[in-house]
Design a binder for these strands. Sequence first.
DNA 1: TATTAGCACTCCTCTTAGTTGAGTGCTAAC
DNA 2: GTTAGCACTCAACTAAGAGGAGTGCTAATA
Lengths: 342, 342
Amino acid sequence: MLTNRQLQILQAIVDDFIMFAQPVGSRQISKKQEITFSPATIRNEMADLEELGFLEKTHTSSGRVPSEKGYRFYVDHLLNPQGINSRDIQQIQSIFNDRLVEVEHIIRKSANILSELTSYTSILLGPDVQRHRVKRFSIVPLSSDSAVAIIVTNNGHVENRMFSLPPNFTASDLEKMVNILNERLVGVSLEDIHKKLEAEVLTVLQQHVRSADDFIHALVTATMHNSESKIFYGGKTNMFNQPEFHDLNKVRMILDLMETTSQVQSLFHPNESGIQIRIGSENKQLEMENCSVITTTYSIGEDQQGAIAIIGPTRMDYKRVVALLDVMRMDLTQAFTKNRSD
Amino acid sequence: MLTNRQLQILQAIVDDFIMFAQPVGSRQISKKQEITFSPATIRNEMADLEELGFLEKTHTSSGRVPSEKGYRFYVDHLLNPQGINSRDIQQIQSIFNDRLVEVEHIIRKSANILSELTSYTSILLGPDVQRHRVKRFSIVPLSSDSAVAIIVTNNGHVENRMFSLPPNFTASDLEKMVNILNERLVGVSLEDIHKKLEAEVLTVLQQHVRSADDFIHALVTATMHNSESKIFYGGKTNMFNQPEFHDLNKVRMILDLMETTSQVQSLFHPNESGIQIRIGSENKQLEMENCSVITTTYSIGEDQQGAIAIIGPTRMDYKRVVALLDVMRMDLTQAFTKNRSD
DNA sequence: TATTAGCACTCCTCTTAGTTGAGTGCTAAC
DNA sequence: GTTAGCACTCAACTAAGAGGAGTGCTAATA
């Protein structure tokens, strides 16, 4: 168990390093107002903290730097979220000023403002479209052999896909088909559509419409690889500002990671509640060994969920980011439950 | 006017520098197979070429480097597009293998393959949606006070926007309205919709539907800021490979530029035909002073146009890129005119 | 007259050595 | 238990020197 003095020193070191990105020496700490003991005493405590694994040295005669364990202890025990002021809050509120109706706009704006306020990179996940339910299904023919299938969901999302029509497909065929599909598909979630199509709808259609096989097949493949949650980025190049990313290779790896949808998705932990913090190697991705990722979720309407991630160096301003994310998730949740309905 | 020998030497120097990114010395040139004269002779010619502004030195005793004027001369007079082989062409063809119907997929894939083949960054502009014409207009109500407006265009593109319904708006109101809108809007291009709405449709609607004013207003604002051509990127971080971009600031500026839609749009020159090359400061953007941009256009169906840009260092492999773009534009044009129809 | 060999000169790049200063750990005094 | 004092370490900076790639000029050559 750490003594009070050790806690105080550890906190001072982490805070200082987060602020200045320089190894912290005993003298520097001793000059802080809240510290009442001499550099020599601090040096002794520092040596203990290093033995315990909370601090590291970059070389034998350098100041101390927090280890991952140090950061972990810091966020678990020494963090009282703060460091945001009314200006910050005002700026967040400004997202909702212009009475935008569209979820997408709000999220896009949120991503930008978050990256601006944190000076890190923000990633926001929109609603999980897969769980939307079909409100209406329609098909608009474009020519004799192609058409667009359109699905409107209960939340106002629109999916559309072009596909080729089987030859000799008449307008009345199409109408019958659309009617049947609407009867059967309304209320089904997008992720279940192709199951439903193949299991149930196919047999019904075969009785009423010629070339239903081909058609359904086209439709199934069209709805198969459906879009996952849309991803919005803010401040993609903000990391260039951080001294730990003055290395081109690191930056590149992270930027590349952010271009890969599956990798980005795996940054999130949608099943855990509250605010998650992954420090350095706690992240699964090798590319993120020098980064911390802070994530949280927000609600969109009754049953939808979005997520937020902030990516920065392990030397991240955890206090501020956690505080900001907390405000953000609440505001987003509120904004999206107020106006949405079925 | 340059002598034959000067042309030969200029070409050799530019080619060599494009390949190795190192200032080129007289000895290096003299060792090339096609060069039959001594280093001393080459030095004399180099001095002349420098006086004429085609070459530069990085310092008094360094080898020569092409100037912008040198590159310009090179692409104007010494460039015979080549340097692509059947493997490259095969890879380009592979874009069209899986009989994709959707324009978007093909373009996305093209962007990736182009960046892979060039090892530069590619930007592709999709069709200019503004010039699509309305095929069908429909409205799907979501709740008592909100609905989605959907426009399907002749090319199978789907635009949709949520908006609030005026209070006490009945289903029959909606139906009437949709009918009127379809009568009037089909065949109108997207960019003209709001003019048409305000000028013509408004008065008709006012006669038949209550609260038409509010409604049209909502619709107009919804269709106003329509999406421009969609932008697709390939190999955003490829520039990290180029030695001239080992400077974080340059990379950052270019990446930031690529996040700004208006800036990206201004890289293209849709009214010029063929393949355009902008070298260094020939680009309007200050950020691009060390870059060259090669652009071209391709056709999508009868009247639509897309565009391609490749961004690389001024020391770009012009030969290869021009050759690749030429194949690409032809293949895309062909693919999109074959299957499209009204 | 056009070309080329030879040579002095330039200047970048790399290495080495020396200096400075921030910081530590240890010991002894308070 | 705390702190002043001091020897020690090591990164960061600076200066000097060696090496080498390349040039421009001059004089010899075909």
